[in-house]
Amino acid sequence: MILAIILVVAAALALIFILSITVSRSLQVSNRSLAGAIQPLDLEAFRNLTDAAEDEYLRRRLRPADFRSVRRERLRAMAAYVQVAGRNATVLVRIGQSALAANDSETAEAAHQLVDQALLMRRNATFALVKIYVALAWPNSGFAAKPIVVGYQQLSGSAMLLGRLQNPAVPVRIFAGM
């Protein structure tokens, strides 16, 4: 009987989970307000946080206990940045997906690149968060999030290209924050 109850509850939860995803998708905010959902992100500050040389400098200058405390603060800040970057990537996935249907092949291609890189960014952000939380437990361990920075820059480039193709009139050059 206990097994039956467990399975019934599991089935109910699975159904609720799937239906909630389906319903939330259909109730999602309009595509047009998506770009406004992107939060600005200071890439330079993030680079500073992920700079191994900076960590090494702090390690030399501070007492071990102080260093661990500072390092944890920096890791928490890093996690906050990565979370925002991940969220921005998901917004860009949706923007890119909406542009995939474009009749213009150039725009569709740019949208495809944007989606792919945004997904890569989201994936990297997920893995980076795991690494950051692990590093929080062992603040003395070396950790650098360089691939995130590189991925973020590539993502910005793709979004810029898509923006330029969709809005040729707008004098788009290069952007850093998302």
């Binding site: 595509n31 047009r32 998506l34 770009a35 406004g36 992107i38 600005p40 200071d42 890439l43 923007i95 909406s98 542009a99 249907a101 474009a102 725009t107 910005s156 979004a159 810029m160 898509l162 923006g163 969709q166 809005n167 707008v170 788009v172 050059r173 290069i174 952007f175 850093a176 924050g177 998302m178």
Partner: peptide, 17 residues
């Protein structure tokens, strides 16, 4: 629907990068 990226955001991103 295919959407265009809003101008103001793009400008903001431009400045940052």
């Amino acid at each position: 629907a295919v959407i265009a990226l809003p101008e103001n955001n793009l400008a903001l991103w431009n400045r940052e990068l």
